Amino acid sequence: MKAVRVHAYGQQPSIDDVEEPTINGPLDVLVEIGAAGLCRTDLHVVEGQWAAIQDPTLPYTLGHENAGWVREVGSAVTNVAPGDAVILHPLVTCGLCGACRIGQDSHCDNASFPGLNVNGGMADLLLTNARAVVKLQPNLQPADVAALADAGLTAYHAVRKSLDLLTPGTHAVVIGAGGLGHIGVQVLAALTSATITVIDRSSEARELAGSIGADHTLDANQTDDQILTQVRDITDGGAHVTFDFVGEHGTPTTGVAMLRNRGSYYTIGYGGEVKIPTIELISREINVVGNLVGTYHDLVELMTLTAQGRVTLHTRTYPLDAALDAFHDLESGTLVGRGILVPKNAS
């Protein structure tokens, strides 16, 4: 089968012919990939940023945003059957550790992470387990939802954590309305009554944000002082919550600066640094909140919103054989929404 593989960090991946995975254990699920999302994390993986954290054995297959159809299941699998359309939680978890027991399975002590430390879904087939698969409702297709497995799930998780802070009359600011942020805007509009302001460099992304729930949009191609002045005017003094879907190139600094006292900076994107004098943390009582991928239950809730039509992915589809073109478009910033890789045999 075909697979998009990393052979060495700092070098572009290649499209290889590899052996098909097979069922080995009673809870295994073999999935025919219908679509695999392309994420900025994939760029960071290729750069080697995750090497020390995940330490995969090279070469291996990329792809952590996956959906498709069940081909085969292990003897103990009861929640899905061959032919079912499914989306896959990014982590393959154990169900037995303390984190799993309390529903925080995204922090499973024994998890594997397809696409980051074991073979992922930018391929014709992916081996996962019964704890990772969410059966799709009949009105959803794998290509329509694949990128929600991580981008959507991460955005949903961050917004879900902030609900107590975003009561009526509050202001949320979203930095970056691209592949991750445009989902966050929709989730904010679906779950809160906060006024939503979006900041992005791309006029296309701002236009999209305005059509899916943003009340205000600001051009990021201004000075920081100009942006901060406009945000403070719109929010009457500062944001209650800032969601930073970029997390680098200076956005952590401006994201914190636009908060009102007792505001919260939620970082979802990464690559930069948050530097705040401790006296500012104390005197303003501001919070810095990290956000990893969401839980299995978060993904179930997100699929419900999606089936209801309240969250929609804006995507550009590439055949799996054109994966390197998709990587280039994402890295160059010409890709609006999410890139989706579709294997030739997907139907």
Score class of each variant (00 low, 15 high):
4 V>G: 00
4 V>D: 00
5 R>V: 03
7 H>C: 00
15 I>N: 00
18 V>P: 01
19 E>Q: 12
19 E>P: 00
20 E>Y: 00
22 T>H: 08
22 T>R: 12
24 N>C: 10
25 G>A: 14
26 P>I: 10
28 D>H: 04
29 V>D: 03
35 A>I: 10
36 A>T: 13
37 G>W: 10
37 G>S: 11
39 C>R: 09
45 V>P: 01
49 Q>R: 15
57 T>I: 14
59 P>G: 10
62 L>E: 05
71 R>V: 14
72 E>Y: 07
74 G>Y: 08
79 N>K: 13
81 A>D: 04
82 P>R: 04
84 D>Q: 04
85 A>C: 01
85 A>L: 03
90 P>K: 03
93 T>Q: 01
96 L>T: 14
96 L>I: 12
99 A>Y: 13
100 C>L: 07
108 C>R: 08
113 F>Q: 05
113 F>P: 02
117 N>V: 06
120 G>V: 08
121 G>N: 04
122 M>V: 03
123 A>W: 07
127 L>V: 10
137 Q>D: 12
141 Q>S: 13
144 D>M: 13
144 D>S: 13
148 L>D: 03
150 D>T: 06
156 Y>M: 06
157 H>R: 06
163 L>N: 05
163 L>T: 04
167 T>S: 11
180 L>E: 07
180 L>Y: 03
187 V>D: 01
188 L>Q: 04
191 L>D: 05
193 S>H: 12
194 A>F: 08
196 I>E: 04
196 I>A: 06
205 A>G: 04
205 A>H: 08
205 A>T: 11
213 G>E: 10
224 D>S: 13
225 D>R: 12
230 Q>H: 11
238 G>C: 05
238 G>D: 05
252 P>K: 08
253 T>Y: 03
262 R>I: 10
262 R>T: 15
263 G>S: 09
272 G>K: 11
273 E>V: 15
276 I>T: 11
278 T>N: 13
284 R>C: 06
288 V>F: 04
290 G>C: 10
295 T>L: 09
297 H>L: 12
301 E>K: 13
303 M>A: 09
304 T>V: 13
309 G>H: 10
319 P>E: 07
320 L>N: 01
321 D>T: 15
323 A>W: 03
324 L>P: 00
327 F>W: 13
332 S>A: 15
335 L>M: 12
